[in-house]
Simulated scan of single mutants.
Amino acid sequence: MPKFTWHTSAVPETLPVRQVYGFLFVPDGRLLLRLDGRKHSLPGGRPEPGEQRYVDILRRETLEEVTVEIDEPHYLGFQCVDDGVAPYAQVRMAAVVTKVHPPAPDPDNGRIYRRLLVHPCKAGDLLAWGETGYLQAGAAADAAVRVFGLPGDGLPDAGDL
């Protein structure tokens, strides 16, 4: 079983980045989650050939998967995945949604994902990533308030975007 550890430092140059995912906030402070059936996840994915900047990967993936545009993302850290073969990094970023487009099929697989807005404190439970997931969600909620100036209390509960 893979071992997951959360780090708020830069990804070491020797550790390959296999995924970039984003905690995306709307201006009222709620968090956008991607819903595929009953599974909640963050928008994001793998770098494509030639892509090196985490920002570019996240922007492309959010537009493809949940059809939203984002402001300048803020780096939160990375999750190291040690699968017993070759460790790799999953980068996590936070950003504010600036434009919402109608849902459309993901060019990668043809699925249309639902978009769910939730209070950030529910992210850890809904993502079900264990302790490292709670640490990531906490870092994202902190960045929403501290970096983006979004409200942190008195948010609406949940709803579709």
Rank of each mutant, 00 (worst) to 15 (best):
V100F: 02
P105G: 13
Y21M: 13
A94F: 04
A158S: 15
A158H: 11
V26T: 13
V55W: 11
D36L: 11
I57C: 14
T132M: 06
E61I: 09
G152L: 06
C80R: 15
V66T: 03
L42K: 03
L161H: 12
P102H: 08
D106R: 07
C80I: 08
A89C: 07
A158M: 11
L58T: 00
Q79T: 10
V97I: 15
R30W: 00
P2Q: 01
G50T: 03
T8F: 08
P47I: 02
A86S: 14
C121H: 11
G152M: 03
K39H: 11
E64N: 15
K99G: 04
T98M: 01
G149P: 07
G50V: 00
M93G: 04
M93T: 04
T62A: 15
V55Q: 15
V97Q: 06
A137M: 01
L33W: 10
F4A: 08
V26Q: 06
G138S: 07
C121V: 14
G44H: 05
V100D: 01
D125Q: 00
E51C: 09
P16N: 06
A141V: 11
L15Q: 12
A95I: 00
L63A: 07
M1Y: 01
A144W: 05
T14E: 15
Q136L: 12
R92L: 12
L24W: 00
P2F: 07
R34S: 09
A89N: 06
R60G: 08
H7M: 01
C80A: 14
K3E: 08
Q79F: 05
D125V: 02
S9H: 13
P2V: 09
V118P: 04
A123Y: 04
R146P: 03
P2W: 03
S9A: 14
D83W: 12
E64S: 12
T132N: 02
V11C: 12
L150I: 13
L76I: 14
V100Y: 01
A128M: 11
V55N: 11
